[in-house]
Write a protein that binds this DNA or RNA. Structure first.
Length: 178
DNA sequence: AGCAAGATCGGT
DNA sequence: CCGATCTTGCTG
């Protein structure tokens, strides 16, 4: 007689797209401690988000949308939960999550996890490139966010690499888990 | 069509 | 501190 086996696979709840459809300054700190999950073939890579930055609207000179709606920035005008990936310095992919409602251009740059430090290292580790651009955070995409039940304490600092952004460079919109 | 700058990283 | 490397948006 076969031994009875119960499959006790405790799944972390998937964070719904609606979570991202609120102001970026509310969403960004809440993202710390959550899992970012990347499924490649049969393997699921799970990192804990530890560092993010908020980019908020056309008036924010550090935000790409400060140039208005262009071929590149139109992704930021989609509803929260869309994925915005862009290419910089000729070699690096940056992963962002769009927030807020449609036509309100905001996004969160994911800068680091418990496994990697630096936004480009993250996309390298999770094998994320421009093919994810404009897709949504969901299992079908191969990239999504899961609840962890943990809310990490954090500090805020100015955003990195945006010294061109006049007074906006001083906004404390970088959130780093302690 | 040409140009300057960029939400970075790794090596001096 | 500096170079790599190429997309993007702006200028003309």
């Amino acid at each position: 007689m076969a031994k009875e086996r119960r499959q006790i696979t405790v799944l972390n709840p998937i964070v719904p797209l609606s979570f991202f459809q609120q102001d970026v300054l509310d969403v960004a700190p809440q993202l710390l401690g959550k899992y970012i999950v990347r499924k490649i073939k049969n393997e699921s890579i799970r990192h804990i988000v530890t560092e993010v930055e908020a980019y908020r609207g056309e008036e924010d000179l550090a935000c790409h949308a400060s140039k208005g709606k262009t071929p590149r920035t139109r992704i930021m005008y989609l509803s929260g939960g869309h994925i915005y990936v862009y290419f910089v310095y000729g070699m690096y992919y940056m992963l962002n999550i769009v927030t807020a409602e449609e036509e309100n251009p905001q996004a969160i740059l994911i800068r680091g996890t418990n496994e990697v430090s630096g936004p480009s290292r993250l996309t390298r580790a999770l094998q994320i490139d421009k093919t994810f651009n404009e897709k949504k955070l969901m299992p079908e995409t191969g990239l999504w966010i899961e609840e962890s039940g943990i809310s990490l304490p954090y500090k805020t600092t100015p955003r990195i690499g945006v010294n061109y952004a006049k007074e906006w460079k001083n906004k404390l919109w970088r959130y780093v888990a302690l």
